[in-house]
């Protein structure tokens, strides 16, 4: 298993992450579903402003791991520290981490009973206690940023899949998170809508957001990732820059995976 620290920047990325502080720190994280071990001593460090793409076959533990970062799943062994706060059974820590970590889901999970603008401004109003007018102004700015301000007063059910996923990104950004988690966000989209979502994610990466992305979009991984982690059977098999990962991977399992998808 490769050392999980920041590596040399790749061609398109001239970020110097060697001095950046650790945003996500995982130490020997393990999790079981009954007898099935979903995570097997996963250790990794993700630096501030770093974009990490997690690749791997289905059922390899990618989603379980990313969902442990904001404790939608509870890890059973090891430690997870997010922005210097350790995830334990302490409700206060969990709530603090969740308010600093944004997450976007495969199935969008927008609130169908609220208008788009209310979906985006709900958490700022109730968690950050912002004045409604200010929260709505911010929501409109975010909808502008994801390119759908004209849909603000519609309900999620009236939007296309790509539009819904963009609202979901705006909703996560409304909490002004330090970290964004993307869990297979383009897998439920029609092919022509994938690009509009990926473009927003690219722009977000360029703006310096710390991102952890589980995806099957190899093009996105090559272009945007600072590091790629390859996961299989609950373990991180290989870590490296996109150049290293796609051009001369060291592990046999990585080679096999790449030969199957490329």
């Amino acid at each position: 298993m490769s050392d999980a620290t920041a590596t040399e920047p790749t061609g398109g990325h001239t970020k110097d992450l060697s001095r950046a502080r650790d945003m996500i720190l995982c130490e020997d994280v393990s999790k079981w579903y009954g007898d099935f071990q979903a995570l097997d001593k996963v250790s990794a460090t993700i630096k501030e402003q770093e974009v990490v793409v997690v690749l791997g076959p289905s059922g390899g533990g990618k989603s379980t791991w990313i969902r442990c970062i904001n404790r939608l799943e509870i890890h059973q062994e090891g430690r997870i520290i997010v922005d210097d706060v350790e995830l334990t059974n302490d409700l206060r820590n969990i709530e603090q981490v969740r308010s600093e970590v944004g997450m976007v889901f495969q199935q969008f999970n927008l609130f169908p009973h609220l208008k788009v603008i209310d979906n985006v401004s709900l958490a700022p109003i109730w968690v950050r206690k912002k004045p409604r007018a200010e929260a709505e102004e911010q929501a409109m700015a975010l909808l502008e940023r994801v390119g759908i301000p004209e849909q603000a007063h519609k309900y999620p059910g009236q939007l296309s899949g790509g539009q819904q996923q963009r609202v979901a990104i705006a909703r996560a950004l409304a909490m002004e998170p330090k970290i964004m988690l993307f869990d297979e966000v383009t897998s439920a989209l029609d092919p022509e809508m994938v690009k509009e979502v990926l473009d927003i994610m690219k722009a977000l990466a360029l703006s310096g957001m710390t991102m952890m992305v589980v995806t099957h979009e190899m093009g996105f991984a090559k272009e945007v990732a600072d590091r790629i982690m390859f996961m299989e059977e609950g373990q991180i098999v290989e870590v490296g820059t996109p150049t290293h990962f796609f051009e001369n991977p060291t592990e046999d399992r990585t080679k096999l995976f790449l030969s199957q998808i490329l």
């Binding site: 904001n70 939608l72 944004g102 889901f105 999970n109 927008l110 968690v127 996560a172």
Partner: peptide, 9 residues
């Protein structure tokens, strides 16, 4: 999950 993820109690 989505509601928890945006930090609602």
């Amino acid at each position: 999950e989505a509601a928890k993820a945006v930090g609602l109690k």
